[in-house]
Write a protein that binds this DNA or RNA. Structure first.
Ligand SMILES: [Zn+2]
Length: 286
DNA sequence: ACGAGTACCTGTCGGC
DNA sequence: TGCCGACAGGTACTCG
């Protein structure tokens, strides 16, 4: 589910809402969603203050006091949803006008309660995600495995050129590899390949310098616009307040196989690359 | 070292 | 209706 724009949207929401809050209580309904000992996790997290919320690639990082960090990966269907103590959107006279989604629900695996009574729900239908509490040294070990942040100055056409050099796998596989560029996923790789006019199944080391420049520009462009739209809600993605992202309206190829190309009206094709569904325009992309 | 394939879960959708 | 297979935003592992 969440790729860089979605995780960044959640990060911004939660940073604003949780900075300065302290953890009053932690409940874990499904132990496998917490890496390591659940009892240690609860005991060590309780009492810490949230100093800020950061992100590396698709990994959410809550910077806590005591040199600890709470790592959260939402994988495909994870959600991190905040609710203040007074949560009902009221009609003003008892009954809430809008029936909001009830939390916790059957996919809520961890609930963190803060000092002011606000709650943070970690939901994950497919249970691929995880939470992990680490110290400074462990954080460094985790973070150093990620490649360049695509919205940082370090991400240049030259950097991308070096990443495809000598790679016999597909361009798509290189772009999805988090050790190279951190944060791209299936949606935005398909989208940026369309914007750049390059087929994602092309052998990475056969992509030309001109195309590299276009891919680099398209990556930055699509990620920035997706963040501005608060991400893509295709199915389960929700922002830090349970709201939906609006970028699905802007998608040119992802989820549109069999439909007409927005640029040339050709029928979009679907193939599999590295086990991932992939959509492209056979005319606009070379 | 690299690249390909599979496992981890639960749900939805389309075909018969 | 029901059953069955394919598919879903991501990694982490194994094998050759
Ligand atoms: Zn086209």
């Amino acid at each position: 589910m969440p790729e860089l724009p979605e995780v960044e949207t959640v990060r911004r929401d939660l940073h604003r809402l949780l900075r300065g809050q302290w953890v009053k209580n932690v409940s874990v309904n499904k132990e496998k969603m917490v890496r390591g000992s659940t009892s240690l996790f609860k005991r060590n997290l309780r009492g810490l203050l949230v100093q800020g919320v950061k992100r590396r690639g698709k990994l959410l990082i809550f910077s806590m006091t005591d040199d600890k960090s709470l790592l959260v990966h939402m994988k495909m269907t994870g959600q991190m949803i905040y609710q203040s103590k007074q949560t009902l959107v009221g009609g003003g006279h008892g009954q809430p006008r809008v029936k909001r989604d009830e939390l916790p629900n059957k996919y809520t695996h961890v609930v963190i309660v803060f000092g002011d009574g606000a709650r943070l729900f970690f939901n994950d239908m497919r249970q691929f995600g995880y939470m992990r509490l680490v110290n400074a040294k462990q954080l460094e070990q985790v973070v150093k495995r990620f490649g360049v942040e695509p919205l940082s100055k370090a991400f240049t056409p030259d950097k991308l050129r070096r990443l495809v050099r000598g790679r016999k796998t597909s361009l798509k596989n290189v772009l999805l590899d988090q050790r190279g560029v951190a944060g791209l996923g299936n949606i935005y790789v398909d989208e940026l390949c369309f914007l750049a006019g390059v087929r994602p199944m092309r052998r990475a080391d056969k992509v030309t310098d001109r195309e590299i420049v276009k891919l680099h520009k398209a990556a930055i462009n699509v990620l920035k616009r997706a963040i501005a739209a608060r991400g893509t809600t295709f199915n389960s993605y929700r922002d830090g307040l349970g709201g939906e992202g609006k970028f699905v309206r802007m998608l040119k190829v992802y989820g549109r196989s069999g439909k007409l190309c927005v640029r040339c009206k050709t029928i979009l094709k679907r193939v599999k690359i590295g086990g991932r569904g992939t959509v492209y325009c056979p005319v606009c992309q070379k």
